[in-house]
Amino acid sequence: MMESLFYIAALVALVATVAALTRSNAAHALIYLIVSLLAVAVLFFLMGAPFAAALEILIYAGAIMVLFVFVIMMLNLGETGDIRERQWLRPRNWIVPGVMAALLLLELLLALRHAPTLTSGVAVAPKDVGLALFGPYVLAVEIASMLLLAGLVGAYHLGRRFIVRREGRSN
């Protein structure tokens, strides 16, 4: 029963991802992507990683995707964007990316052929994660905070200039 739940969620994730990447409307694609992320969160939970699953939903599907939504709303692409996207997705354009991706997948499969093993089935509690995080990995936490700070500053900088120029007070 639970195993079938896993495979259903995996199927959902795969289908939603493919759909997300082939839609011509950005908003629709984003919804599919969120579905995909939620399905992956289910997988995390089923594999015994409840903390990761929670973060996947909160931050990935929540915060990051909301950012996308905001940007798409700001750009306001509309109907013309959809038509143009559809023109770009003609079958001819699929050949090279399709072949490349298929080759890579094939190679990954070949590499994963060995080691048929099962997951432990024992959950790793958030407490353990927290202990490891602020124990041996405290430096990684610091680095991650630095990275986020850099992202914050970069995003602020890029966004600020955008707004300033929009108002025509510069250049």
């Binding site: 990316p97 490349m100 890579l104 190679e107 990954l108 590499a111």
Partner: peptide, 16 residues
């Protein structure tokens, strides 16, 4: 991106 993937495919092929 395509060049990158091509190189990746090639490298993986050699490793395999």
């Amino acid at each position: 991106a395509t060049s990158l993937v091509f190189g990746l495919v090639l490298l993986l092929a050699i490793m395999l």
